[in-house]
């Protein structure tokens, strides 16, 4: 199994507010070095690293070494998959609820 993907459930990964904030920060830029991410939080570098590791295990974050620093970027693909199932039911109910509106109007006539 690919170590950077599918090891951890994306739901678990984004359940934590720190990790959601990390995703937002990463979404704003192409690639962010660890020290810049750490500077955004009250917690230490190790704690931020741990959160990034969890995101990495869920396939949401990709890292690479550039010289002595590690840079992180977002991989939004698993989030899109999360959205698919929502989108399905959202569309299902919106369509049905619109149909109900038509039924109620017909009944009025």
């Amino acid at each position: 199994m690919n170590e950077s993907k599918g090891v951890r459930d994306a739901f678990d990964a984004i359940a934590d507010p720190t990790r959601r904030r990390l995703i937002r920060l990463l979404a704003e830029e192409e690639e962010v070095p660890l020290h810049e991410l750490t500077a955004q939080f009250d917690m230490g570098r190790t704690a931020v690293s741990k959160h990034l590791t969890i995101l990495k295990e869920a396939g949401l974050v990709v890292d690479r070494k550039v010289g002595r620093e590690t840079r992180f970027r977002l991989n939004a693909v698993p989030l899109r998959e999360v959205q698919d199932w929502v989108a399905f039911y959202s569309k299902f109910w919106r369509t049905n609820m619109f149909r109900l509106e038509q039924l109620l109007e017909e009944e009025e006539e």
Partner: peptide
């Protein structure tokens, strides 16, 4: 997560 990573809003 039964269907992989699919889920809700």
């Amino acid at each position: 997560n039964v269907h992989g990573l699919e889920g809700a809003r």
